[in-house]
């Protein structure tokens, strides 16, 4: 199956990725090759197969609902591009 430049723009938007206009064609080509390649899975007979959830059939572990983490906000915010008064700054979203 072949992906069009518009398909690539749509997928890139869903993934919140800016793809430069001059690169769209190349991504369309590469992604089409990848989708063609994985399309062969459709030929496998899987009617009677239950999809696998975990290779060792392990179930998700539960823990008690108690606080286990201490507050590391100041330390973690040292990696943030922009903060103020303990908050993460982003461009204005409400006018």
């Amino acid at each position: 199956m072949s992906l069009s430049p518009d398909d690539v723009r749509h997928i890139a938007h869903l993934a919140r990725l800016r793809i430069e206009e001059q690169d769209i064609q190349e991504y369309a080509g590469n992604l089409s090759r990848i989708v063609d390649f994985v399309d062969q899975l459709g030929k496998a007979d899987t009617d009677a197969v239950t999809p696998m959830a975990h290779p060792l059939e392990m179930a998700q572990r539960l823990r008690d609902d108690v606080v286990t983490e201490e507050n590391h906000r100041d330390e973690y915010q040292q990696n943030a591009p922009a903060t103020e008064a303990g908050l993460y700054l982003v461009p204005r979203v409400i006018e």
Partner: peptide, 14 residues
């Protein structure tokens, strides 16, 4: 067609 089918083929491989 893709993700669910791949989890089935993954089971066959396992």
């Amino acid at each position: 067609a893709y993700y669910l089918q791949a989890q089935k083929t993954r089971k066959l491989i396992r």
